[in-house]
């Protein structure tokens, strides 16, 4: 019997780094953003913005990229079929599109704007205010998209028999 160790390792890697990515996304949305609102009120926000946020963002953005690369490797020869939503690839294909949009949001909308917010890149107060709103909405968009993305990504495990997708 021939084994496919490469695909097995890519599947495992995709899940592990995917947990890191989406776990940190949920941390930002469900923990850090509400906590910062309270921390700003009592003057303790700098602990989060100086020590926690940069490190969380570091793991977050690279885990996002690693998740996409491992996912693409896992699709392998089925990559084009998935992104073309060919028959039999509808669920994983749309899941892949959602994951790709989310990766774009991380690197093009969230990270460059967070650099301005956290003072890693020079920005005026008005630029920071705009950056805050863009980064917030991109992060919330990813949280929203993560729900259908995860549903469709895990499709192969159960839904074919359960809901006929």
């Amino acid at each position: 019997m021939e084994y496919d160790y490469f695909t097995a390792i890519m599947r495992f890697t995709h899940v592990v780094v995917g947990v890191a990515w989406i776990g940190l996304l949920y941390y930002f949305n469900f923990v850090q953003v509400p906590a910062l609102k309270n921390a700003n009120a009592d003057g303790t926000a700098s602990g989060i913005t100086k020590h926690v946020a940069p490190l969380a963002l570091l793991w977050f953005r690279w885990a996002a990229l690693a998740t996409w690369i491992a996912g693409a490797a896992l699709l392998g020869a089925n990559f084009v079929s998935a992104f073309s939503l060919d028959t039999g690839y509808e669920a994983i294909g749309l899941g892949s599109w959602l994951g790709t949009i989310m990766l774009f949001n991380v690197w093009v909308l969230i990270w460059p704007n967070q650099q301005k917010i956290l003072g890693m890149k020079p920005a005026s107060d008005s630029e920071k205010t705009a950056a805050r709103r863009i980064a917030f909405l991109a992060s919330r968009t990813n949280t929203m998209l993560s729900i259908p993305m995860l549903f469709l990504m895990t499709n192969g495990l159960s839904h074919k028999g359960l809901i006929g997708l």
Binding site: F30, L85, M144, L145, I147, G164, L165
Partner: peptide, 30 residues
């Protein structure tokens, strides 16, 4: 109308609704 993404609950509800819409579209039109 308020943006549902401004609240955590609104974000989750929007995600669940989007999931139902996607499943319906995939099952019926793609």
């Amino acid at each position: 109308m308020k943006n549902p993404l401004d609240s955590i609950l609104g974000t989750i509800v929007a995600g669940v609704i989007l999931t139902v819409v996607f499943v319906y579209l995939l099952k019926n039109f793609i």
